[in-house]
Design a protein around this nucleic acid. Structure first.
Lengths: 138, 138
DNA sequence: AATATTAAACAGAAATGATTGTTAAGGTAC
DNA sequence: GTACCTTAACAATCATTTCTGTTTAATATT
């Protein structure tokens, strides 16, 4: 995700409006490495903007995802998580506490679609999800 | 997943009972490489056993997952999918039609958790999800 | 700089769809 | 036959989306 200032410009270029609610959501997401769910974003925004609606959180996350400013993580079976870091990276999830870690390692030289499939299936990317148990839960 | 015959023994050893409903579900899953959702399993079972209930499908899939006979795939944002093939392998999902392909390639020599994390996080496995668009949807 | 205009965004409620919990009745296995 | 597991049906839950009337940000106009 861009900085809040740059993101403001990006959104305006997309014909979108900058509202106080959105600014709060951007602030919560900026530099956030905790991979929050929509509800976690909601709870954090609510602390500084109590009138905000759950719907607004969902819609804004959806909007940010659609314009590619955040990534929606499908890794926890129970809910979606959001990551403002859109640089290619991978994740580790603790099967017990569902904590998600970033794995910044470039596996692309070794992880490719088999040649036999390359002609019929384009690849826009891949995501590696490590599963395990973290120290606290072990 | 084991063959239906072997699976019968496995379930009995777990103190579980073999019912006609379950046998139909096993039959639908056996050698199935289409990564069906619960609803897709339900629809197929219903053709040969119309009285079966959706709940039974869910509960049976959950049971099979818990004893490790099938794998629950968290790859489609909309619903869970099930895979009777529990050998380690990976997947490709078409972003458009949501078709899921198996990728039988052993990436484990190259895909490991960074050393810096190894002391605090055990790894029970990893899953690679390739995203892209298939020929039919391109 | 203040006002009018309008499309976008808002809050809140309600709906949706996937999944899970409950329970009485029925079936399996010994 | 008995004990226990499983089923079907239904209700409930949870995350997410849709709907609706209201408000607001951005822009044009004065």
């Amino acid at each position: 995700m861009e900085t809040v200032e740059k993101l403001t410009t990006v959104l305006r270029n997309h014909g979108m409006k900058i509202t106080p609610q959105r600014l709060m959501i951007f602030k919560v997401l900026e530099k956030n490495t905790s991979h929050p769910s929509a509800e976690e974003v909601y709870n954090k925004v609510k602390k500084i903007y109590p009138a905000v609606s759950f719907t607004t959180i969902y819609k804004t996350l959806e909007t940010l995802r659609d314009i590619g400013e955040i990534k929606e993580l499908i890794i926890d079976e129970d809910r979606k998580h959001y990551d403002p870091n859109i640089d290619i990276h991978h994740h580790y999830i603790c099967s017990h506490c569902k904590k998600i870690l970033d794995i910044f390692e470039d596996f692309s030289p070794h992880v490719k679609l088999p040649d036999s499939l390359k002609s019929d299936y384009t690849v826009t990317g891949f995501q590696i999800s490590f599963q395990g148990v973290c120290k606290e839960c072990a």
